[in-house]
């Protein structure tokens, strides 16, 4: 029982419980805020395993950009009124959904058991990462040399998304 495990349990509990709350809360704003909490916890998990760059990006991009956008849109569309939409969803869909999810969870859990024994040794164990100057440095070096093409493509994708969103959401001059 070392600190790592305790931290892991705490963070993962927060992440999972707030994810559940996203689904179960009536108020969309409440859902949004639960999601933000979940994202924070996940960032913590990333940091725990040593993927610091990813953790930072998680906070910057997911919580900082995406969730802010979500809250903006919720407020813009006046969708923050609590809607008792759970009651209106057909009972069958709710039950089937829940059952399917649980079953899938169990099945996947069983399927993932072999993962317990993977002991691959690759070039980047945690010690080597620290020795090479940290996760951020190594990852960015790799991204900007071997995977430069994908990086550039992603920037084009972002450009396309911006153009599309503006075209979609623009108010029409009638």
């Amino acid at each position: 029982m070392n600190a790592e495990i305790i931290a892991f349990i705490a963070l993962s509990t927060i992440a999972l419980v707030s994810a559940l709350l996203v689904v179960l809360r009536e108020n969309p704003v409440g859902s949004a805020f639960s999601l933000i909490l979940s994202f924070f916890a996940v960032a913590g998990l990333y940091a725990l395993v040593g993927a610091h760059f990813v953790a930072a990006l998680q906070i910057l991009v997911y919580t900082g950009a995406i969730m802010v956008l979500f809250v903006f849109v919720v407020m813009l569309l006046n969708a923050d009124k609590p809607v008792l939409d759970f009651l209106k969803t057909s009972k069958w869909i709710k039950m089937t959904g829940a059952a399917a999810g649980i079953i899938l969870l169990i099945v996947t859990g069983i399927a993932l058991q072999p993962a317990r024994t993977i002991q691959a040794t690759g070039p980047w164990s945690t010690e080597q990462l620290i020795a090479s100057g940290g996760h951020t440095r190594v990852l960015s070096l790799s991204m900007f040399s071997d995977h430069l093409f994908a990086f550039e493509l992603t920037s084009f994708l972002l450009l396309a998304a911006i153009v599309a969103t503006i075209a979609l959401a623009k108010r029409r001059r009638s």
Partner: peptide, 18 residues
């Protein structure tokens, strides 16, 4: 899977996106 259930069950489009 929590997210999957949420997509199926919720009826508010924004929550589905979340």
């Amino acid at each position: 899977f929590i997210g999957l259930i949420g997509v199926v069950v919720r009826r508010n489009l924004l929550v589905i996106l979340m």
